[in-house]
Amino acid sequence: MSETEILAVVVEWEFPFPPEKIWRALTQPHLIAEWLMTNDFQAQVGHDFRLSADWGSVDCRVRTVEPHRALSYSWDTKDLVSVVSWTLTPTSAGTVLRMEQSGFRQDQQPYYRGAQVAWPRFLANLEQVLARMG
């Protein structure tokens, strides 16, 4: 692996829910706050928003919005500039949700390892939120 190679964290999770339901949880601020962080998200390309937690915040900008199919946004912290992309693929049993966070440099192993641990937890939280939703 070269010094300039960019790393990505990918998590795929199959949910027993339709893409439309998952899309709501990915794009409605009060639902995002339940499984990820407090935010001022809007599903509008170019919208700047902030995700906030007790440890700090992440500055983001919406890059892609394809309702019920795909969403992406920049994910910028003090030292990390990356992109989070969501892809929703309908299946006979529900939806496969693919999350990819790309842009980790080789010298950003702590961020990379942290994301490898955090994203599966966030998706487990998302599953609980989806189960509670009407």
Rank of each mutant, 00 (worst) to 15 (best):
P120E: 00
L36F: 15
M99Q: 10
S74I: 12
R61C: 11
Q44D: 04
L26M: 13
S102V: 04
Y111Q: 13
H47I: 15
D79Y: 14
H47A: 15
E12M: 13
K21A: 10
M37K: 02
S92D: 12
A53R: 03
W119F: 09
V84R: 00
E100D: 09
A43D: 09
L26C: 15
S72Q: 07
T95A: 03
R121A: 03
L36Y: 03
F17H: 14
A53Q: 03
P67F: 04
P16E: 11
P90R: 01
H47D: 11
G114K: 08
R24W: 12
D48E: 15
T77W: 11
D76Y: 05
W55M: 13
D59L: 13
A43N: 06
Q108F: 10
A8N: 12
A33L: 10
F122D: 02
G114H: 09
V84K: 01
L80G: 05
G114M: 11
L71I: 12
E14C: 06
N39Q: 10
E100F: 09
I32H: 03
D76E: 13
F15M: 03
M37T: 02
R113C: 01
I22W: 04
S52F: 06
P18I: 05
T91V: 01
V58P: 04
S102M: 06
V11F: 02
G56K: 08
T77K: 13
P90M: 02
D59S: 14
I6L: 13
W35P: 00
A70S: 12
L80S: 10
K78W: 14
K78Q: 13
I22L: 15
F122E: 01
P19D: 05
W86M: 08
T87S: 08
E34G: 05
S72F: 04
T64D: 11
K78A: 14
K21E: 10
K21R: 15
L36W: 06
V10P: 09
R121Y: 01
G103S: 07
L97R: 02
